[in-house]
Amino acid sequence: MTTYILRRLLVSIPILLGITVIVFFVASKMPGDAVLAMISTETPQAEDLIKLRRGQLGLDLPLYVQYGRWLWQLLQGNLGYSFQTGESVIDILLARIPATLQLMGTALLIAIVLGVAMGVVSALKQYSRTDYTFTFLGFAGISIPDFFLGMVLVYLLAIQWPLFPTSGISTAGEPYSLVDNLRHLALPALALGLVRTATFMRYTRTSVLEVMNNDYVRTARAKGLSEWLVVVRHILRNALIPVVTVIGLTLPVLFGGSVIIEMIFQWPGIGLMFIGAVTARDSPVIMGYVLFSAVMVQASNLLTDMAYSFLDPRIRYD
């Protein structure tokens, strides 16, 4: 197992490098650059200023040299400094990652708990009214983009019935309180989570239906076990194996989704930071975000594979 994890970690290094190379060169093809975003061409002696600033930021060097410098810094544990503010990218990331993790974690938790529970009920009561209702909601959820659902939630739960605030992570100017934080979290987490809930529910339903008809489930009933034990221990344990794959594959999508949701709800996480960085062509910040999300995706893939061997004793890595 340890050798397997080490091997996977080694393999992920070239993958991460590849991702940064591609993003670095593609991002450089965006029209304009950080300096043009900062200095208006109307400014007197604009041309000289722009040239000077480009020189300071190293933007006048060939691309491969710029990438090389970024990589060299990275190896020393430094992600560079924001072109806009001069702050250390690592500090910016560290300040904002908790907010994003809170949003994504809550959304994922909503999706897993609700999705798996609804999927199990739907399957156990196949073709019942509950099943049809959940199926309808599921298809609706899968078809609605999360940003649109976000706006619907804002309209319903913030404007029609003003229950929740629509932006920020807490009320400005007030001391931090958990309740206030959670109220701010409600709408973005729901918007991000409900769409995934629908996906998890459909997969869980299918998987449970498949497992339910297995001989070993009949054996479990023939033993005289309670229905609860039959469902939780014998059906769910097996049915969750394919669902874990889907959950693992959802994490990257959740990263993408959180960028848009953070923007709609002005959630001060790294997604919102990323949008700002792209607009300002702030490439050190862009690269910092990309590197962090790539590491997270790699880690989630590895965790998914670990989860398999935990759930299914037939799967062993060595």
């Binding site: 297995n214 001989d215 070993y216 009949r218 054996t219 479990a220 009933r221 023939a222 033993k223 005289g224 076990l225 014998h234 344990r237 097996n238 194996i241 759930l311 299914d312 004793p313 037939r314």
Partner: peptide, 19 residues
């Protein structure tokens, strides 16, 4: 079930829970 009346099935490969 399983106490006073017990049952064994046709296919032992699938009658036990694999996990």
């Amino acid at each position: 079930r399983g106490n006073r009346i017990a049952m064994i099935f046709q296919d032992p490969m699938t009658s036990l829970n694999p996990v």
